[in-house]
């Protein structure tokens, strides 16, 4: 098991993870990050064209190892 840290937020408004969560490996951490991003979108996606939500994963050394992001595009047609 290794501890991973999941910073998440909306462009300039990020919540830094100071607790971390243990997972067996990067693949498990990636899946967890995706589930986190889906929950974040449900809570935080607003009617803002260009809004970008993200979850960024750090390892125990503090290195950023993965970024998952979603952006909203609202285009009149």
């Amino acid at each position: 098991m290794a501890r991973y840290y999941f910073d998440s937020g909306d462009r300039n408004d990020a919540v830094e993870d100071e607790i971390g969560i243990e997972y067996a490996g990067l693949e498990e951490a990636r899946r967890a990050g995706l589930e986190g991003l889906k929950d974040l979108a449900k809570d935080s996606l607003q009617d803002l064209d260009g809004q970008q939500l993200f979850v960024e994963v750090r390892n125990e050394n503090g290195d950023k190892i993965l970024r998952l992001s979603l952006s909203l595009n609202v285009t009149p047609i």
Partner: peptide, 15 residues
Amino acid sequence: LSTVHVNRTLQELRH
């Protein structure tokens, strides 16, 4: 909720 979002929300409550 996913563990990652619980983790984030606990930190929002803390802040």
